[in-house]
Computed example of a mutant assay.
Amino acid sequence: MEYYILDEVAGNQDIPYIGELPEELDMINVIMGKPLSLNLPIRLPVKIDDESVVVYPDMMTADIPLFSKKLKNLLDGLGINNINYFPVELFDEASGKVVAHYYLGIINGLIKCLKSGVETSPAGRRIIKNPIIDPTLTDGQMLFRLYERPLLIIIDSYVKEGIERAGLQWVSVIKTEDYISL
């Protein structure tokens, strides 16, 4: 089984910048997959300089994982059932106008499943380099967060193929073996 990292495409300057997160939306709890109690919909401010060039990708992960309706529906259709979704309204900081709708995707738990690829730097910092996932340790999950690097969302080849067929915008899928943490 091959595994991949699911992420947004980095470096797109036309994606709106998400402002300050609400207090009750703790980034660490989101990444760790802990249950949250939130007022819905979650309203997140975005800074928009020029509306004519703004791109709303199918996935944004700069602060918290936001999924478009198209991506959410795709993952639901593929049988991914370990994500809790919360509706999100992105609103323009300047005008207060809602400019896009997304879903915050909280992936339940972390899976410790690396066969190899964890190193320690001379300074004692853990580095993930060309990780290899042991499929016998994934509990059959097709999408999960990696215990050894919780910011990473891992998908299997079945989910990757579904994403490629769907023609999603600004979504990145790279082999786990090609990943090196900084």
Rank of each mutant, 00 (worst) to 15 (best):
E2W: 00
Y3I: 03
Y4I: 02
I5D: 04
I5T: 06
V9Y: 06
V9W: 02
A10F: 13
G11N: 10
I15Y: 12
Y17L: 13
I18S: 00
G19I: 05
E20I: 05
P22R: 09
P22C: 10
P22M: 08
E23Q: 13
E24L: 10
E24Q: 14
L25D: 05
L25N: 10
D26Q: 03
M27I: 12
M27P: 00
I28R: 15
I28A: 15
I28L: 15
I28H: 15
N29S: 15
V30P: 07
M32D: 15
K34V: 06
P35T: 09
S37G: 11
L38R: 11
L38Q: 07
L38I: 13
L40S: 11
I42T: 03
R43P: 00
P45M: 10
V46E: 11
K47Q: 04
K47M: 08
I48D: 03
I48V: 10
D49L: 14
D50L: 07
E51F: 08
E51G: 00
E51L: 13
S52E: 11
S52W: 01
Y56T: 04
P57K: 08
M59W: 07
M60R: 12
T61H: 04
I64N: 04
L66D: 10
S68N: 09
K69Y: 13
K69H: 14
K70Q: 15
K72T: 13
N73V: 05
N73M: 13
N81W: 04
N82K: 00
N84V: 07
F86Y: 15
P87T: 07
P87W: 13
E89C: 02
F91D: 13
F91E: 14
D92C: 07
E93W: 00
S95T: 15
V98K: 09
V99N: 12
V99T: 14
H101V: 04
H101F: 10
Y103C: 08
Y103F: 15
L104D: 07
I107N: 05
N108W: 04
N108Q: 14
G109A: 06
G109Y: 02
L110H: 07
L110I: 02
I111P: 06
E119N: 03
T120N: 08
S121F: 11
S121I: 11
A123K: 12
G124T: 03
R125P: 03
R125M: 14
I127Y: 05
I127W: 11
I127L: 14
K129D: 01
I132Y: 07
I133G: 02
T136A: 14
T138Y: 03
G140F: 02
Q141W: 12
M142D: 04
M142K: 02
R145E: 07
L146R: 07
L146I: 00
Y147C: 05
R149K: 13
P150L: 04
L152T: 06
I153T: 01
I154A: 03
I155R: 00
D156S: 04
Y158G: 07
K160A: 10
G162H: 14
G162W: 12
G162M: 13
I163W: 01
R165D: 07
R165L: 14
G167F: 06
Q169G: 00
V173M: 06
I174F: 07
I174Q: 09
K175W: 01
K175G: 04
K175F: 01
K175T: 01
K175V: 03
E177R: 12
D178Y: 08
Y179S: 12
Y179L: 13
I180V: 15
L182T: 11
